[in-house]
Design a protein around this nucleic acid. Structure first.
Lengths: 118, 118
DNA sequence: TCCTATATATAGACTTCCGATACATCAGGC
DNA sequence: GCCTGATGTATCGGAAGTCTATATATAGGA
């Protein structure tokens, strides 16, 4: 809470990733983990010990809500975005694009030296 | 050291930013701070208490080297990339572009809903 | 003289993320 | 029936990053 918004963004894009994955529809924890891993081709792969506390935090912040799946023996907790979460996602996504653009400008000259043929 | 490379990347792009700023040429701490703030239009603005320990860490990892400016009364410690630092910057920059591309794909549908006229 | 900008540095607190561990269900092999 | 692995959620302890606050010192302007 003491942190500025932009610091969060630098710190980790994980919140943002979770929110954007949930924007696709209601998901439970294990499914979120898989979605993220798949869509990033394994690059983003938060562990269970990271994911579940994070989901609790997001729920405490009223950005997502949850419901337990009954009926089946499987214990599944389904998460979905709240209105506040959707709003947050939009704002944060826009900020992310801005910061990314800045870093891209910094990094372009770096990577362009690399693929140069001898 | 226990962390994977991609975790670092998610955690914060700060290392990457510092290295890329130093790729422009030798700089001292305060100057690095300003360069970064300026080039990101204030979005990335690491504090002194963040920056100096970070620089020490990068130097311990032999990614940058430093020399004290003598002659003047001003105490200035000039930092520059080592060969290892340049290599690291290139590799990490490429990874950054890959991860960014994935996140962009996730976020595109989110932000495109926003500017839509009613 | 006092205040601000410049310049580097450390200490303490807070947050994030991970690895390890625990527990429960279900499917398949033997 | 038993074992193993994938599924599914959760907590704990620790490592690491970043912040705020603080300290010190020089330079320049009001």
């Amino acid at each position: 809470m003491t942190e500025t918004f932009r610091t969060e963004l630098m710190r980790g894009s994980l919140d943002l990733m979770i929110l954007s994955v949930l924007a696709e529809g209601e998901k439970y924890g294990y499914l979120i983990q898989q979605s993220l891993r798949d869509s990033s081709h394994g690059r983003a792969d938060p562990k269970a010990g990271t994911l579940y506390p994070l989901l609790q935090r997001l729920e405490n912040e009223k950005l997502i809500r949850s419901r337990w799946e009954s009926e089946t023996g499987r214990r599944r907790k389904w998460y979905s975005l709240t209105a506040k979460g959707k709003k947050k996602l939009q704002v944060q996504a826009e900020e992310w694009f801005e910061l990314t653009a800045c870093l891209e400008k910094l990094l372009k000259p770096v990577v362009q030296i690399s693929p140069k043929p001898a």
